[in-house]
Design a protein around this nucleic acid. Structure first.
Length: 472
DNA sequence: ATGTCC
């Protein structure tokens, strides 16, 4: 794949047939994927062939190989000009994302109670493959209410406070969710997992604010140096996975009928305005609401533990997805256009002044939550005016080793002991699960964030370090 | 990511 270096953190893949637009990769040279092991830059070029795509097929500095689209990919299609929506551009874990809460407690004050707190959080957090949930739903109607109402419904049912919703993307619920477009199998898988963490790279971490880069923004977000925080990273569990599976299959069947050809079957898609496109977006929105309710419920469970063990409160900083497609209005060639913006392993980063921000954040911009690899640290960023890529930035460290490779390179080592040696208390997770998530399997999140900032996609606000982690 | 193959 030929890359042209346009500026220090921006590379271009020139348009060549059948690409409709160029590819743009925001990265430093050392962060670029190794073409021998990772074909994600070919995927960037493949995405550029999609009908209706505008500007460019973008990749963030944490780009790596994914299903059809790269993880760390951003692509927007023009709804009124045959623009398509592709389930592979959202990913299997629909509305996977991050929620950050800030405690009225400093790390020194927590130290004597950290072990008891981690024990409590470990017990209160259902996790792992398939097992357990915070909320056992009474019937299908209640699951439909979750699919329509997201965090808002969870708050209405007593799992949170009204203020939480002001600090959630979409005020806690995506509009246009259509539970009727969710298959029975997806419903069955989702019904018993509402309020559960999952496994893999999902986690609940107790963290401390290690460094503040922007006092004004940090204060507006409710963050200060030394403060204890809780970060929750999880998604839509089996429900989102099943919806992605269902609609990839459906779109593979109807693509030819819509006159669409793609270079990779995993890019299955349909026009946004087609019956299949609208059905997917309705089901995807339902899964997004499920993921948000999931994070709301886990946060509520963590709040109860915090109150009992430490006597302190947890205020929501923000809740934001990094796997979603959204219909948004952006300027294209000097015109305002409705675009279907796919962000897969990429985070929306609204700049200061944006209409969709709550009043108390309007002057500083949207909090962007970037989970690092396990045990290394995480970042809080914010959007910047006039940024490229439809107000998007990176979503995390980005894998460099497959799960299998990671397990192999940890052979003979004890991942739990390595974390304990760095004073990080671990609850849950199998040895294998931990080995798959060790920092060696990931890029350096600080380098990823520096590249994202260098590329003009976002600005650093604060860095958080882990004190304890609950894993699936 | 994921009842890691209905």
């Amino acid at each position: 794949m030929e890359l042209v270096e346009e500026s220090p953190y921006r590379f271009r893949i020139d348009r060549h047939d059948p690409m409709r637009v160029p590819g743009v990769v925001f990265a430093s040279r050392s962060l670029l994927p190794d073409a021998g092991e990772d074909r994600s830059l070919e995927q960037v070029a493949n995405v550029a062939t999609l009908p209706g795509i505008v500007d460019a097929s973008y990749a963030m500095p944490d780009v790596h190989w994914g299903y059809g689209f790269p993880i760390g990919g951003v692509a927007a299609t023009d709804v009124a000009n045959g623009g398509v929506v592709s389930p592979g551009g959202v990913g299997f874990d629909i509305s996977c994302g991050v929620r950050l809460l800030a405690a009225d407690l400093d790390r020194d004050g927590l130290r004597p109670r950290l072990d008891a707190l981690m024990d409590g959080l470990g017990e209160a957090t259902p996790r792992g493959m398939g097992r357990g949930a915070v909320w056992h739903l009474s019937d299908r109607a209640e699951l439909d209410a979750v699919l329509r109402g997201g965090s808002r419904y969870a708050v209405e049912r007593g799992f949170g406070v009204e203020r939480d919703l002001h600090r959630c993307e979409d005020a806690g619920a995506v509009g246009d969710a259509d539970p009727a477009r969710v298959s029975e199998r997806a419903i069955e898988r989702g019904a018993r997992q509402v309020g559960s963490l999952g496994s893999g790279n999902h986690f609940l971490e107790v963290q401390a604010v290690e460094e503040v880069y922007d006092d004004t923004a940090a204060t507006a977000f409710g963050l200060r140096p030394g403060q204890v925080c809780v970060m929750i990273h999880c998604g839509s569990r089996g429900l989102g996975h099943q919806i992605c599976t269902d609609y990839v299959r459906k779109m593979e069947q109807v693509m030819a009928r819509h006159g669409i050809e793609v270079p990779d079957r995993q890019l299955a898609c349909a026009p946004v305005t087609s019956a299949e496109g609208r059905a997917y977006l309705g089901a995807m929105a339902a899964a997004a609401n499920y993921a948000r309710a999931n994070r709301q419920l886990l946060a509520d469970a963590a709040r109860k533990v915090f109150a009992r063990v430490t006597g302190s409160r947890l205020d929501l900083v923000y809740d934001i997805s990094h796997n979603l497609a959204k219909i948004e209005t952006h300027g294209v060639d000097g015109e305002r256009r409705a675009l279907c913006v796919h962000r897969k392993g990429a985070t929306r980063a609204l700049p200061p002044g944006h209409d969709d921000l709550p009043d108390d954040l309007r002057d500083v911009g949207q909090p962007v939550l970037i989970p690092g690899s396990m045990g290394t640290g995480s970042y809080v960023l914010t959007g910047v005016p006039g940024a490229p890529a439809f107000a998007s930035t990176c979503h995390g460290a980005g894998r460099v080793q497959s799960r299998k490779q990671a397990v192999r390179s940890e052979r003979g080592l004890d991942p739990r002991a390595q974390l304990a040696a760095r004073d990080i208390a671990v609850r849950g997770a199998s040895r294998r699960g931990l080995a798959e998530e060790m920092p060696a399997a990931y890029k350096d999140v600080s380098a990823v964030v520096a590249a994202a900032e260098g590329a003009g996609l976002c600005r650093k606000v604060a860095r958080l370090v882990p004190l304890g982690v609950v894993k699936g």
